[in-house]
């Protein structure tokens, strides 16, 4: 029997299976989202107990064929990760987004690095809004739904400061007159360029980025709301 290779992973979600087992959804570097069965992981002396630790870098091994792999090894690879307050919920927001947008077997190598980097930034930087917007922006790109922040979708002219644009999901930005801009949700060239250059330094730029990214994510997420957003908006302010 060959020894299974160890892989880097994060746990995105777990649910109980039977009395003592857990089904976990992993985000792995090489294979994207992978569903694993951790047999007996709830037993006191299980060697797979670390599967309960979300937001923590893990080293795992699994084997098997089909939809659900069997977890054979699970260990915390760098301990000391701890999130609290808004940072904890923001980190859980990443998990919820990934669970909704990634299917098992979707192997998107860049997402693992993006996730890891974003967790670090959430830990180190306050407030977290800026970090979340950049995560959403890059996630869309890696999933193949990146927003074209460079050019007008109809005229193919560069997006410029001083003009206003409407965003059509799946299509892109279209320039509008000032009169039209006041009637609909329109984004200033400044806001679009700020997101393009990842320079969301002002409240207005951040708010616009949030609205825009929600518009872009909406068709991918469908009608079921993102629950963590409610928690982040509710009683949960820094």
């Amino acid at each position: 029997m060959s020894t299974p290779t160890l892989k880097n992973a994060f746990v995105l979600h777990t649910r109980a299976y039977r009395e003592t087992s857990i089904i976990a959804e992993l985000l792995t570097l090489e294979e994207g989202r992978v569903g694993v069965l951790a047999k007996g992981a709830k037993r006191r002396y299980s060697t797979l107990g670390a599967v309960n630790q979300q937001l923590t870098p893990l080293t795992v091994a699994y084997q098997g064929r089909g939809e659900l792999q069997t977890l054979t090894h699970c260990e915390v690879s760098s301990p000391g990760c701890y999130f609290s307050g808004t940072k904890l919920l923001s980190a859980l927001y990443l998990n919820e987004l990934l669970m909704r947008l990634l299917s098992r077997g979707d192997a998107v190598a860049d997402i693992f690095a993006l996730y890891q980097k974003t967790l670090d930034r959430i830990k180190q930087q306050s407030p977290v809004a800026n970090t979340l917007r950049l995560f959403e922006k890059h996630l869309l790109v890696y999933l193949g739904y990146g927003i074209n922040l460079q050019t007008d979708a109809e005229t193919e002219k560069k997006i410029v400061k001083g003009k206003f644009y409407r965003y059509h999901p799946g299509h892109g930005f279209v320039v509008v007159t000032l009169g039209q801009a006041s009637q609909h949700t329109a984004f200033s060239g400044e806001s679009i360029i700020a997101l393009q250059q990842e320079n969301l330094t002002e409240a207005k730029l951040l708010t616009d980025a949030k609205i825009l990214l929600r518009l872009a994510l909406a068709p991918l997420l469908g009608s079921r709301p993102i629950k963590t957003r409610e928690l982040l908006q509710g009683d949960f302010h820094d």
């Binding site: 979300q54 609290s84 009683d235 949960f236």
Partner: peptide, 17 residues
């Protein structure tokens, strides 16, 4: 002491402020 348990505790802390 899980991520969800912690999130729940944190939320209650905010709620009871």
């Amino acid at each position: 002491p899980t991520v969800e348990g912690d999130a729940t505790a944190q939320y209650i802390v905010q709620l009871t402020k």
